[in-house]
């Protein structure tokens, strides 16, 4: 039997990797890839907690995961639209070069 700990650790690992991707990738789209990883890690976590819950008739975990799906989709859509718009304007997708708020 797979203890819950393993699933949760997996989720933590995915999350950390995603975090690393967000913080260190140059391309804006790659950053969003990292964000997706993080969201997936969250979903894994939620699903694991649902399965290892005491009352399996309560679908809270899964519902939450569904909602996260919807949010992730929305976020990706808008985020990529923004990246494309920025690319059109500034002709670059490198996050470091988009520094209009620099002092």
């Amino acid at each position: 039997m797979v203890p819950l700990t393993w699933y949760v650790v997996l989720s933590a690992a995915l999350f950390s990797i995603g975090l690393f991707g967000v913080l260190s990738r140059r391309n804006a789209i790659a950053i969003l890839l990292g964000v997706e990883l993080m969201l997936n890690a969250v979903n894994v976590n939620l699903a694991a907690f649902w399965r290892y819950g005491s009352d399996l008739t309560k679908m809270t975990g899964q519902v939450f995961a569904i909602i996260v799906f919807a949010v992730a989709a929305a976020e990706v859509a808008v985020g990529l639209a923004l990246v494309i718009s920025v690319y059109r304007r500034h002709n670059t997708v490198i996050a470091d070069e988009i520094d209009l708020l620099k002092w």
């Binding site: 967000v22 913080l23 950053i31 996050a95 470091d96 988009i98 708020l101 002092w103």
Partner: peptide, 11 residues
Amino acid sequence: PIQTGRVQNYM
């Protein structure tokens, strides 16, 4: 200098 304008630095 903190205000680099770069999102990743902020994060």
